[in-house]
Every structure is written in structure tokens, then in C-alpha cells.
Simulated scan of single mutants.
Amino acid sequence: MRIWGKFFGVVIGFMFGRFGGALLGLVIGHYWDTRGGKIKRMVGRGNSRQAVFFNSTFAVMGHMAKASGRVTENDIRLASMIMDQMRLNGDARRDAQQAFRDGKSADFDLRGCLRSFRMLTMGRPELLQMFLEIQLQTALADGELHPNELEILHTIGKELGFNRRQLDELLSRWQAEFRFRQSHGNAQMQPIGQAYSVLGVTAESSDQEVKRAYRKLMNEHHPDKLVAKGLPPEMMEIAKHKAQDIQTAYDRVKLERGMK
């Protein structure tokens, strides 16, 4: 009988949050005992926080992909693309594929997975946001947002500490970024409206507000900073793509405004 996760969850939870913390620790410990085997094997190969991020990301991706009723070719293509971006091969790729399959199962404990993830990543906002953005990308893989997918996104946002307004802002930014990526070429060719949306500002924003938004986003998505805070090194390529999109959008806005 697996009880050690629950035992340590209760002890640690009580230390930080008394009885309420102990209850939360019990829930997280139960998830660890029942579904943590893959994570435990991965921990043996590296940092525990990174292993949890890695496993949880693909498990929730699988759960999201199944939300519309069936896993589509676009869902599988997106998961494979992210694995390719992360250069996953051998055991690492098989771990990711298994986590994805685990997330598709009918008894997948979404809330338990998210609570375990949030606790073991110590609630670092940059990692939580990166995780949420990957799930947003999964939900919109087919260009549409199914009601079940939106419900799951709301659950993810709530469990990770994002309010409805923050989730809506991230969703709007990601949709703009998706369209922005479709416009290949240099900064001059990028649609200005979408460039503003990627930065989370508008044409009415001042130059100072644009610069402030750009610096904030780059600080949140700088690959080296994210890895230092627990992002698995394999996911650095995803962070690089995100930072490149932010930089391209900022270059487009600067060009439009004649900013230096």
C-alpha cells in the first residue's frame, strides 16, 4: 500500500498551513502515491521540480486534447511538435508520450495533478504562466475553443492562482501570437494590430507603456531565467520561440512609431 506521499504531504502541509495545509498535503500526497510512478522515475534522472513540470505538462495536454470528445490529428501533431522542439528522444520521449496517454484516461485527477505541480514548483509565477500558456496552445490547436476546453482552462487557471481576467488576457495574447506567427517575414511585414496584442497593449498606449510591457514580458519569458527557476532545460526551445515572438512584435511596434 502506497502511503508515503500522503504521510509526507500531511506533515509538510501542516508545517506550512496547519490543518488546512495538512488537508491539501493529503490530497497532493494521494496523487503522488497513485500516479507519481512516472514522476519518481524521472526524478531519478534530474531535478524534481523540473521532472514534475515535464510530466504534468504532457499529462494535462493529453487531458485537454481529449476534452472535445476525441484526440484529433492536430492535437497529436502539436504534442509531437513540442516534443521535437524540446529534442526529446529515447526514454524522455517515451515518458512524455506516456504522460500524454495518462492524461487522456477517464480517471485522470486534473486537480490533484495541478495542486501537486503548484506545490512542487513553489508557486513560481513564471513557471505557472509558461505551463498555462502551453495548455492554451493545446486548447487552440484546431483553431477553435470547445466549451469543455474552456472549462478545463478555467480549472487550470483557478488551481494555479490566475483569476478570470488574467486568463482572458493570456488567451487573447496567445490567439494574437498564433496569428502573428502565421505572418512570416521581417518586422515590416507583421500586422501592427496583432503586434500590439502580443505585447498586451493598444495603439493608444504611450511609448513608455509599450516599453514597460515589452520589458515585463521579456523578463517573464527569458529562457535562462526560466531554467534557473525550474523550467526543464528541454523546454528552453519553447521559451526561446516565445521570446522571439515578443521581440518581433516589439520591433514591429517600434518601426510603426519610430521609436528608438
Rank of each mutant, 00 (worst) to 15 (best):
Q175L: 13
R93N: 07
Q182H: 10
I39Q: 08
G157A: 12
D91Y: 03
D84H: 05
R252H: 08
F19K: 13
M61Q: 05
M218E: 10
G193D: 14
F7N: 03
D207A: 11
K211S: 12
D168F: 05
G36S: 05
M235P: 00
K38C: 01
K6V: 04
M189C: 08
Q194R: 07
V43W: 13
L78P: 14
Q50K: 05
R35A: 02
M119N: 05
K211H: 07
Q85V: 06
G13R: 00
E220P: 03
H221R: 09
L88K: 01
A243S: 07
F16V: 05
Q208M: 08
Q188D: 11
M189N: 15
H30R: 12
Q190S: 08
F54K: 02
T202G: 02
H63F: 04
M64T: 06
I238L: 03
R215K: 14
R49V: 08
S105A: 15
Y196Q: 02
R35H: 04
T202L: 05
G185I: 07
V10S: 09
F19D: 14
F7H: 03
C113S: 11
R49F: 01
F100G: 01
Y196N: 01
D245M: 05
A51Y: 00
D75A: 01
N55Q: 13
R101D: 13
M81R: 14
P147N: 10
M86I: 14
L145D: 07
D33F: 07
L23K: 03
S205Y: 09
N186F: 11
L231P: 04
R181A: 15
K40H: 10
W174H: 11
D84F: 12
G185W: 06
R35E: 11
G9M: 11
P147Y: 12
D142G: 13
L199H: 00
A228V: 09
E159A: 07
S197D: 04
R118H: 09
M236A: 15
M189E: 14
W4I: 12
G143I: 04
R118F: 03
G69W: 10
R45K: 15
P223D: 11
M1I: 01
D142M: 08
R111L: 09
L128P: 04
S105N: 13
R18N: 13
A99G: 13
L23H: 04
N186A: 15
Q135L: 09
Q188N: 01
N89W: 15
F180T: 12
D142S: 00
L231C: 01
L128M: 00
Q194V: 07
Q182M: 05
N219C: 06
P125Q: 08
R165D: 15
A195C: 08
K104C: 07
D142I: 10
K229V: 08
T72W: 11
D251N: 10
E144Y: 14
K225G: 10
D224N: 04
L23A: 12
D224I: 02
T121Q: 05
E209K: 12
I156A: 04
I192P: 00
H63Q: 06
F117D: 00
W32H: 11
L226S: 09
R70D: 05
Q194N: 09
S172I: 00
H63D: 01
F8L: 14
